[in-house]
Structures are given as structure tokens and as C-alpha cells.
Design a protein around this nucleic acid. Structure first.
Length: 297
DNA sequence: AGGGCCCATCGCA
DNA sequence: TGCGATGGGCCCT
């Protein structure tokens, strides 16, 4: 059974315990940050533990529980070589996904999603007439801000302590929409999204896209990249019929308003580099490493 | 104008 | 080889 939270699973299931889950991610985040900065020096478990103020054993157990991988394996998983092999293994994953539809064998861990586009008018009017209900929730990747409309999930972002900045970031995408804090409205979404036990094809998650035509095509393509696999910016460009627009694809991927659910973290540079992530490269590494742990665990 | 790109080159170990 | 740094081209908002 998957255990998203670093805390022990509760009898009721593996929904993260809010307080401890948040603290655990902060430790995991700092560990990954150090691994990312210093992976060339091969920092030892002792080095990492000292850096986050835990005993080596405690860090080993906390980290493995969270990621499904030991810090050492995780270190291996964030190297350039591994990213390249991930790309090799995922070659033409987009073509394959389209051929197989949603029932292919690689779909074991996927969060299933149905999407529909908000009217072009709503996009051009910058959210005019749309009512957004939002709240923050604990997640395995730090505090998550969710925004939902009556038609489904429209926004998901992350915070590393500055909730106001995250909220402003998300609100500014649709400045003319009505924004109301409503934890009851977003909580069911958060519970489903971050608990793989609730990822089921027969009950897909409804999401709403608000963006330009070009952005919509990029985001739709993202949904075809399976869990634990990766693609490249140029592959997406080719796939949507704009083979020379890789850079514009990068911008569109970066503007994806529903991160994690629309898996923008599964897009890498052609050489295996991570390139960028709107919510911080450390978080992109964390999610990719976590997926690797779930997929192999 | 300025990006979560890509390719060709070049300089350095 | 391999890995930075650099310059030019490319395409969307």
C-alpha cells in the first residue's frame, strides 16, 4: 500500500496527518536540496542528517518512508544519467499513449482526469464571471493551494512558507474572477489528489482549463504522459504540430495552473536536464523521485 | 521584450 | 570524452 505521508498510515487509510506531514516534507525538501546542490561530492548519510538536524537513522527512515527510496537511491535518481535513461525508456511515450488510450499497462498508478476548457471568453476576460473557491491543504510536497470552480479543479499551486505569495500568484492568473476562501469546497479534491488509493479510472477527477488555444493543447498533451515516465519540450512541440516551437511550449508548460494533476514535472530538456519548474526545481526533483519510488515500490 | 528550448561551437580538463 | 558558457534562431503572449 502506498503511503503518501511520511507519517505512519492511520487505521482509516493513508491520508496525510496535516501537522506532521508538513514538517516531514520540510525535512525531505532540505535533504533533496542538499543532494541537488552537492550530488557531485556524494554527500554521506551522516552529512545529510547533520544538515537537517536528525540522527542518520532517523533521517534514513523518514526519507525512505516518504520517498520509497533511501537517500542514496534518491541521490542516484536525480543524476543526469538517470534522467537520460528515463527519457530513453519513455521514448515516444506520447505516441504510445495515444495508441493505447487510457487503458495501457503503464497506467497502473495514474490519477485519471477528465478535462474541459472554460469558454475562450472567460480566458480573454481574465476570469470574469468565474467563481473560484480556494484553500490551503497539507500535501506530500508541502502546503498546496487548491482552487475549484463549479465545473472542477482550476488551480493547484504550492507554498514553501509564503502562503500570501502563492495565493497572489494564483489569483493573478484570473484577476477578474471572484475569489472566496472555502476549505470545505477544496478538501475533497485534496484528499483524492494526494492519495493514490483513490486514483480510479471509474471516478476521474474533473479539471477545468483556462488558457489560450496553444496552452490548452500543451496542457492536454501533458495529460498523456503516464506516471513515472517523462517526455521533452521538443517532443510536445512535435506532437501538437509545431515542431519548432519548443521554447514556446516551455513557457506554456510553465504557466500550467494545475501543477501535479497536470504533470508538468514530467517534462525535461532534450539532454535530460530539468530546465525549470514554476514551484521550484527542488520540488520538481521531489515529485519525480517520489514517482520513481512509488513505481518501483 | 522575454521566457521552464535547442543546436552548433568553443575552450578547457 | 564531457561539461560549462555563448550566440543565434524560434515561437507564443
Amino acid at each position: 500500500m502506498l503511503n503518501l505521508s511520511a507519517t505512519e498510515a492511520t487505521p482509516a487509510g493513508n491520508v496525510p496527518d496535516t501537522a506532521r506531514g508538513r514538517d516531514d516534507y520540510e525535512i525531505v525538501r532540505r535533504t533533496i536540496e542538499m543532494i541537488s546542490d552537492r550530488w557531485r561530492d556524494q554527500p554521506s548519510l551522516d552529512d545529510l542528517a547533520a544538515h537537517v538536524g536528525l540522527s542518520p537513522l532517523a533521517l534514513q527512515r523518514l526519507f525512505s518512508r516518504w520517498a520509497g527510496l533511501s537517500p542514496k537511491s534518491f541521490l542516484q535518481a536525480v543524476t543526469l544519467d538517470h534522467a537520460r535513461s528515463l527519457l530513453d525508456a519513455s521514448a515516444s511515450v506520447l505516441d504510445a499513449s495515444l495508441e493505447l488510450g487510457l487503458s495501457g499497462p503503464g497506467r497502473l498508478h495514474d490519477l485519471f482526469v477528465t478535462h474541459h476548457a472554460m469558454t475562450p471568453g472567460a480566458y480573454k476576460q481574465r476570469g470574469e464571471g468565474v467563481e473560484m473557491r480556494w484553500a490551503f491543504h497539507a500535501s506530500p510536497f508541502g502546503r498546496a493551494l487548491l482552487m475549484v470552480t463549479e465545473h472542477g479543479l482550476a488551480g493547484l499551486g504550492f507554498s514553501d512558507g509564503d502562503d500570501a505569495a502563492t495565493l497572489a500568484d494564483m489569483m493573478n492568473r484570473w484577476p477578474c474572477a471572484t475569489h472566496v476562501e472555502d476549505e470545505a469546497a477544496t478538501a475533497p479534491y485534496a484528499a483524492r489528489i494526494f492519495d493514490p488509493a483513490m486514483w480510479r479510472p471509474d471516478r476521474p477527477l474533473r479539471v477545468v482549463f483556462i488558457g489560450s488555444d496553444f496552452e490548452l493543447r500543451v496542457w492536454e498533451t501533458l495529460l498523456a504522459v503516464p506516471f513515472g515516465r517523462a517526455t521533452t519540450y521538443s517532443d510536445i512541440a512535435r506532437h501538437i504540430g509545431r515542431p519548432t516551437a519548443a521554447r514556446a511550449v516551455g513557457t506554456a508548460v510553465g504557466r500550467n495552473p494545475i501543477s501535479f494533476v497536470v504533470p508538468c514535472h514530467r517534462v525535461l530538456g532534450k539532454g535530460g536536464g530539468l530546465c525549470g519548474y514554476h514551484w521550484g526545481l527542488t520540488r520538481k526533483r521531489a515529485i519525480l523521485g517520489w514517482e520513481a519510488g512509488v513505481a518501483t515500490g
